[in-house]
């Protein structure tokens, strides 16, 4: 049986929306979809694609949503023409390539789903459409028989919508994270370091519960108290203290004497000299304080900024392209990311 997958990535939040929402919607700390931010060295998108591949689902398509498109099934109420045509084209391509069953996944939440198990449930119940649920609500993961989508009239999405009343529920009880707020992102990283989920740090465990990515460096006077993750090419300078299940993603720099406790530092971030980062998610220009539930814009590079990369570092980074690392097809304009 040939099984394909269409993975849609929610739209990035536009800058104008960010400025409007500043201070009122702290989840807008991050301009892009949370699924595209690296956690312990790899994005959720990449991890899902790997899980699909491990389940033998090689035929994968990644689609980037436009803003205004929400939900697993393309909505008639909020038409975004380019996304629809890309989605229709992707289904057509999967059908043409012989996919009999199609996974439709929208990367809103992170869930550690056994795709084989879902597929077995779908086949055993002889359903036409299966959607994944937990005890609270539905997830944006569904399985559909492609023969139900074939037809001469109308669109694929029209035929898919007609199947919704007949869908079967797959009840999922495993690890989930809805990835709506920066706290969720932090929780996911924290759980990964404490082995509460199956996200494993991308790097070597250099001492008990301390993982370091390729090319990461820590000054001998710095104190690292695990569990801690220091991503590829990141640098922790002298007299720093890193502890409390902190994750420092790739290409970051923690300058002299700074303390980082129970925080997640996102890629390419510079942390200034002698500062204290506590219970925070930090990007190159914003700090989200998890306890106070507030996002603070920081435009002074002496405090927080984008790490300035040296020529050697740039060379060692190579071309950054997290969509195409494993070769899935990416449709839609990728300019959002």
């Amino acid at each position: 049986m040939r099984v394909g997958a269409i993975v849609t990535v929610p739209a990035a939040i536009q800058e104008e929306d960010l400025s409007l929402q500043e201070g009122t919607r702290p989840q807008h700390l991050l301009a892009g979809p949370l699924a595209c931010y690296e956690i312990l060295g790899s994005t959720i998108l990449q991890r899902i694609l790997d899980a699909l591949r491990d389940a033998g689902i090689q035929q994968q398509t990644v689609l980037l949503e436009e803003s205004g498109s929400e939900g697993l099934f393309p909505s008639r109420l909020r038409p975004t023409r380019n996304f629809f045509s890309a989605w229709e084209g992707s289904v057509q391509q999967q059908v043409d390539e012989g996919a009999e069953i199609l996974f439709l996944i929208r990367l809103g939440a992170y869930l550690e789903l056994d795709f084989d198990e879902v597929l077995a449930f779908h086949c055993q119940t002889a359903g036409v459409l299966t959607q994944v649920y937990d005890h609270k609500s539905a997830f944006d993961v569904a399985v559909v028989n492609t023969n139900q989508l074939r037809g001469d009239n109308g669109s694929y999405r029209g035929r898919l919508s007609a199947l919704i009343p007949y869908h079967k529920r797959f009840n999922f009880t495993g690890y989930t994270n809805r990835l709506r707020e920066p706290q969720d992102l932090r929780q996911l990283a924290h759980d990964g370091l404490l082995r509460r989920n199956s996200i494993r740090p991308l790097g070597k465990e250099v001492s008990p519960e301390v993982w370091m990515g390729e090319g990461a460096t820590v000054d001998s006077s710095a104190r690292i108290s695990g569990p801690v993750y220091i991503g590829a090419r990141s640098r922790v300078k002298g007299s720093c203290l890193v502890n409390g299940a902190t994750t420092i993603e790739r290409d970051c720099e923690v300058d002299f004497g700074t303390t980082v406790t129970d925080s997640s530092i996102l890629p390419e971030t510079y942390l200034g000299i002698g500062l204290n980062f506590l219970h925070s998610v930090v990007t190159a220009n914003k700090l989200f304080h998890l306890d106070r539930n507030v996002a603070v814009k920081i435009s002074d590079r002496n405090l927080v900024g984008k790490r300035r990369l040296t020529g050697t570092l740039k060379k060692s980074m190579g071309k950054k392209d997290f969509f195409n690392r494993s070769g899935p097809q990416l449709n839609e304009a990728d300019s959002h990311l």
């Binding site: 204290n276 980062f277 700090l287 106070r292 507030v294 405090l303």
Partner: peptide, 12 residues
């Protein structure tokens, strides 16, 4: 404000 408290904590 929460923002100021965060910045003061950041700088110790």
């Amino acid at each position: 404000s929460a923002e100021a408290a965060t910045m003061l904590e950041l700088a110790g």
